[in-house]
């Protein structure tokens, strides 16, 4: 893709905004449309765009495989730990009311943590699946298509 100047410039310009939008969807999900799953796929789409335009090897420098493989279970663990946290404080599993002083504050922090967990796992899984495919494909000349 070295010679696709327009693609490279436009992608470089777009990626920060895609990431920012992903963060907005993630952390504004209580108020606007969105949530962890949507934010995760938008985030993953930005990284996949980067990998498509600048190459798989370059993308692996941004998020190394070892970090990615840790992020995949991390989100799920964060979700489950939030659930068990409610148990520890005398509520039911995934009961956020007991997390903080007031039930509403507890609900807020609980939903925040749970959505963050969803976002981390979804983004990491999507990037991992892309890499699993990209890592098996040899580089293709434009004429090949």
């Amino acid at each position: 893709m070295r010679h696709h100047l327009v693609l490279r410039v436009i992608a470089k310009m777009l990626i920060p905004f895609i990431l920012l939008f992903g963060l907005y969807v993630q952390f504004h999900g209580d108020f606007g449309p969105g949530g962890g799953f949507q934010a995760g796929v938008i985030f993953a789409a930005a990284f996949i765009l980067y990998a498509l335009v600048f190459g798989d090897n370059q993308a692996r420098k941004v998020i190394p495989d070892k970090a990615l493989i840790l992020l995949v279970p991390l989100g799920l663990i964060l979700y489950a730990v939030t659930g068990f946290y409610g148990l520890v404080f005398g509520g039911n599993f995934l009961d956020y009311n007991v997390l903080l002083n007031s039930p509403k504050a507890g609900q807020h922090i609980g939903i925040f943590l749970v959505e963050l967990g969803v976002g981390i796992t979804v983004a990491a899984v999507m990037i991992s699946i892309f890499r699993a495919y990209a890592g098996r494909t040899r580089a293709i000349d434009d004429e090949d298509w």
Binding site: G83, F93, Q107, G110, I111, T121, V122, V125
Partner: peptide, 28 residues
């Protein structure tokens, strides 16, 4: 009870949190 305007989020992440945990496990 929850105090957030987006009802979809409050159902997915709080009322039906157990289902969402299962979904994340499926994705994982």
């Amino acid at each position: 009870e929850i105090g957030i305007p987006n009802i979809v989020t409050s159902i997915l992440a709080s009322y039906r949190s157990f289902d969402t945990l299962g979904e994340v496990a499926v994705i994982f």
